[in-house]
Design a protein around this nucleic acid. Structure first.
Lengths: 156, 156
DNA sequence: TCTGGTATCACCCGAAAGTATGATTTTGTT
DNA sequence: AACAAAATCATACTTTCGGGTGATACCAGA
């Protein structure tokens, strides 16, 4: 849950170009707001107090909005990443092998044993063996239950 | 994706008391930052320019952080709400009845037909009928596939 | 080299799931 | 009240799942 300082910058700079526009917008907005604020502070030396205060408040609101916008952009990514990434540690604890994990994934896609067999280029019997072991390791009685448990454990 | 202006305020004020502390913190922070900023603007009339600028920048950063904090708090709730609420409209379009929906939900929990029957106080045969209709309406061949489709359609 | 883990496959059998059909009752709407 | 939709249940049948057992092969680490 802690904000990693440079990770999001990396994501913004390295990731796909679609988000470049928004990135430029945000950094441009920050620069503009900062500039505006500094200008206001200079004006406040010569102008009236009330005028300066109004613009300070506006600039403050702008900064808050920037923070909101920034977070909406990044937090969404962070959350979806966190939600979708599989828990490798738990896989090891449960001693679920690579192939078993693949089978579990295809089970969660609603495939039958034969369909899984075809997509992995193995026989249906082999799939059955994998499924049985998965059920045992996840302490499930049915494949639907295994999928449910797997989802809960962030294994799928 | 649009920010609903008063919805989050409602959530903050009405929801459980655990979040009250954080709420007070945030609004307190906003008030403090505003006060700080206004004070700074007054100081800038008498003090040196550099001194004022430094505090202005600090206040700006504080505002951004406030925006970030605020959004992290609210957006999380919004996202989880959005993700977990079922799509009633699609249920109507698919003509899935209440009982069928219940059965679908219990299927996704990994229950067998008999277990579903017991928890709904109906016979296994009835459950089978419901399941068959669900499969037909969701265009699924197996219950696992139905669960998958249901999840994708935000029906579960 | 031996051993344990993984992956592969096969056969049998019982249990669960799913299909098809038909029938009755309940419920909600006009 | 009348009608449609939903909910209930049953019976018979087919298909899929899952358990149990055993077997072969491969690979990596002790």
């Amino acid at each position: 849950m802690a904000i990693q300082p440079f990770l999001w910058l990396y994501h913004i700079l390295i990731d796909d170009h679609k988000k470049m526009k928004r990135t430029i917008l945000i950094f441009g907005g920050i620069a503009a707001a900062l500039f505006l604020l500094l200008q206001v502070s200079k004006f406040s030396l010569t102008n009236t107090q009330g005028f300066s205060d109004l613009y300070l408040i506006l600039a403050s609101i702008l900064f808050i909005l920037l923070g909101v916008l920034l977070t909406r952009l990044l937090y969404k990514k962070e959350m979806s990443n966190e939600a979708h990434k599989i828990d490798e540690q738990r896989l090891k604890k449960l001693k679920i092998s690579k192939q078993e994990h693949k089978v579990l994934g295809l089970m969660s896609e609603g495939l039958s044993n034969i369909e899984i067999a075809d997509s992995l280029f193995i026989s249906e019997n082999t799939v059955k063996t994998h499924v049985s072991k998965i059920l045992a390791k996840l302490n499930a009685k049915r494949r639907t239950e295994a999928v449910k448990i797997g989802r809960d454990l962030n294994i799928i």
